[in-house]
Amino acid sequence: MLYNAYSSNPAMKPPPFKYIAAESVEHALEQMAEYGDAAKLLAGGQSLIPAMNFRVLQPSVLIDLNPIGDLEYIRRSDDGALVVGAMTRQRDLERSSHVERITPLLFEAMPHIAHPQIRTRGTLGGSLAHADPAAELPVIAITSGAAMKATGPSGDRWIEAKDFFQGMFSTALEPEEILVEVTFPARKPHTGWSFEETSRRRGDYGMMGVAVEVELDEGGSVKEARLVYMNAGDGPIEAEKAAALLRGQRPTQEVFAAAAAEAADNEIDPMGSVHASIDFQRHLARVLTARVLAKAYARAQSS
């Protein structure tokens, strides 16, 4: 009945490892303490498993967080913030009315993250902790002022998104810590948002992408602006000089164009690839920035 032709000599992609199904966050922390650097945490596995299939990563212990059901939740807090468990699937964020209402920027970015078959497994926390410079979620986290809750042997601590990402695949998480929760603050009034990316095909890595949040003052001038770029350097890149050019200005096409040029020409540091040269990436940044600023401004006016 069973077809076992290969099982006596299976062609296994990943190298051998010890597998531990975490029963709780506490259990996972204990296992991390025991195995130290030899262990890797497995969240959705949509980046880690390919890396293991290629044998780029060869952890000798894999601690699977998937059996811990209580890290999967999407809630609205009493002060109106969005509170998300780290193991929440991207597909659930994409379909959440809480996300749509509280963090429309996140909602707008979700369909751009890989393909449906990836988002059903991929998690919010996994993507943030992986910190791929070409990923959408780190950019959205910084733009919307999210905060990450890490838990470790000495208890919990909160890390602001802007301090969380520390370059290529690096975060402020200590080796013995687990990212357990992410909060996105309630959106302020007179605030607009937008996210755009350009990829060769829906779901492919974005050649360039930018998220923006713009807050207007009573008189309709820009009070606060934040622009963050993906695939534009060794991590999510915040264009602070471009934001400074916007602050205090009445929004016009010229002001948007100046900010876009500042960010695209001077602040981002794209690396180029076979699909997009550095010049083309800068060009995309300029075009997308002007586009997201116009859209965010229109939304801020009507909110």
């Binding site: 076992n4 299976p10 296994m12 490892f17 597998y19």
Partner: peptide, 11 residues
């Protein structure tokens, strides 16, 4: 543990 689901289904 390292057996992928795809290989398990097939082999």
């Amino acid at each position: 543990p390292r057996m992928l689901l795809s290989d398990y289904l097939r082999h």
